[in-house]
Write a protein that binds this DNA or RNA. Structure first.
Length: 434
RNA sequence: GUGGAUAUAGUUCAAUCGGUAGAGCACCAGAUUGUGGUUCUGGAUGUUGCGGGUUCAAGUCCCGUUAUCCACCCCA
């Protein structure tokens, strides 16, 4: 009786081609993060349920995988990397050098319904700065977001920024702060359900005057500064929150990337732990995919674990959603390169000698494999071609006797008959450098 | 979790009113035993997602189930 090789809803297998591309993007991101001085950490995938959910009751709780382990402990699989990081900070703050900048790229799990770019197991790439609450850190996260997307070759993007503090000041001013969560959720939907519907819901939540004012508040103006001027005035004038956003914008301008950032007062983020700046990232050619990188400032996140004040700001790239988008837009190169060279198994060749050649080539710093099956030469070339290998080495009895090899460029079909192995290595290396 | 659509060969898709399961690409073998991609010839594709039901007869109709996609919700 065979067992069907099925996998769970929202969970996926990755064939080499796709997994290699995923790893490539991760490598690029890691290089970008480390170039800013960020360091990687790791935390357990499984934690105590109470540690991950806190007091609980939120919308995310329903999506968390929880169960009892064999020791009857209530455990939960991490649904993001930020909450475990908060616990990590509370536990290790004395062992870390502040301000601490970390990145963390790993799988997280959410048991929600699946859709395109939306899975139950997916990779998040988090990067955060903790230990400081200033514009310098807020800015650096935004800059790193920009650098990351640039590094992986995604230029056509839009970052939407907002500030929760200014929004809260505004809500306090119009005496609606008790409904803050519902109001934020509602205005967040304006792109989908439209102004009229939002106004209707807001009127139900508050009253028609306040609803009109909220709608006015979230309407973006011509530019970042104009919008910021407006919401500053509407929130009761200059405040720490508005000053922060002016300062961050100044820094963006100095770097010359301010045009990619728009101030959109309707962006609020569903997660309720954000206290300051918040942001979302959209592919301009595929906005309906949703945000591919979001985050914000959370100054009280660790407060459920420690009395110490640990302010933080961070962002998270949804790697799998991003890849789903890039694939749809054809922005991921089709073919992944294979080994630099393959030693073919031809008539008169010696298996041991082929492996010997391969190990010499590997010692020279190139990647090399030996064709392992017993197939016709045509199949072997086909194999090499399909795997994206551009050079083949053939070494039959003639070559063995003369202590030479024959090299063939699989793409150009150029032949180098009976040359020294060292020459072959030079040719391959030269071609690889181009 | 709720509602809707979909599920056929490795893959992309056909199959009329319910009447023998089909094509392209890919794959395998040969023409080609030390040089492949073209071409030609031949071949296998399969429990029609899975499980029931109706019928003389089900890929097709009905019920259930699982997965995918879409919307809600939420989010990356």
């Amino acid at each position: 009786m065979l067992i069907e090789p099925k996998i769970l809803k929202g969970f996926r297998d990755f064939l080499p081609e796709k997994q290699i591309k995923r790893k490539n993007i991760i490598n690029i991101l890691e290089n970008t993060f480390t170039s800013f001085g960020f360091q990687t950490i790791d935390t357990p995938t499984l934690e105590y349920k109470e540690v991950l959910l806190g007091k609980g009751g939120g919308e995310t709780d329903k999506q968390v995988y929880t169960f009892k382990d064999n020791g009857k402990r209530e455990v939960a699989m991490r649904f993001d990397l930020t909450v475990p990081f908060a616990r990590f900070m509370a536990a290790h703050i004395n062992e870390l050098i502040l301000p601490f900048k970390r990145y963390h790229i790993d799988k997280v799990w959410r048991g929600e319904n699946t859709q395109r770019g939306r899975y139950r197991e997916f990779i998040q790439c988090d990067f955060d700065i903790v230990g400081v609450d200033n514009a310098s850190a807020d800015f650096e996260i935004l800059q790193l977001m920009h650098s990351s997307f640039k590094a992986i070759g995604v230029e056509n993007i839009k970052f939407k920024v907002n500030h929760r503090g200014i929004f809260n000041n505004f809500l306090t001013k119009i005496e609606a702060s008790d409904k803050a969560v519902e109001i934020m959720r509602t205005v967040d939907k304006i792109g989908k359900i439209g102004k009229d519907k939002v106004l209707e819901i807001l009127t139900d939540l508050t009253n028609s005057d306040s609803a009109g004012e909220i709608l006015d508040y979230i309407e973006p103006e011509a530019g970042f500064l104009q919008t910021l001027d407006k919401i500053t005035v509407m929130s009761g004038g200059k405040s720490e929150a508005s000053d922060r956003l002016y300062e961050v914008y100044e820094y963006l301008k100095v770097i010359g990337i301010e045009d990619l950032f728009t101030l959109d007062p309707s962006i609020t983020r569903g997660l309720d732990y954000y206290t300051g700046i918040v942001y979302e990232t959209f592919l301009k050619d595929l906005p309906e995919l949703g945000s591919v990188c979001s985050g914000g400032r959370y100054n009280n996140l660790a407060s459920i674990y420690t009395k110490k004040n640990i302010p933080g700001v961070g962002s998270s790239i949804g790697l799998d959603r991003l890849m789903a988008g890039l694939e749809e837009l054809g922005l991921i190169e089709k073919k992944v390169p294979g080994s630099d060279v393959i030693v073919l198994n031809i008539e008169g060749s010696s298996v041991s000698h082929n492996h010997f050649i391969a190990s010499v080539i590997r010692d020279s710093g190139l990647s090399c494999e030996v064709y392992l099956a017993d197939k016709k030469i045509g199949n072997q070339f086909g194999f090499a071609d399909k795997k994206g290998i551009s050079f083949a080495i053939l070494c039959g009895s003639d070559e063995i006797d003369a202590d030479k090899v024959t090299l063939k460029n699989i793409n150009t079909r150029e032949n180098f008959n009976k040359i020294n192995l060292g020459e072959a290595i030079d040719i391959i290396r030269k071609s690889r450098e181009q």
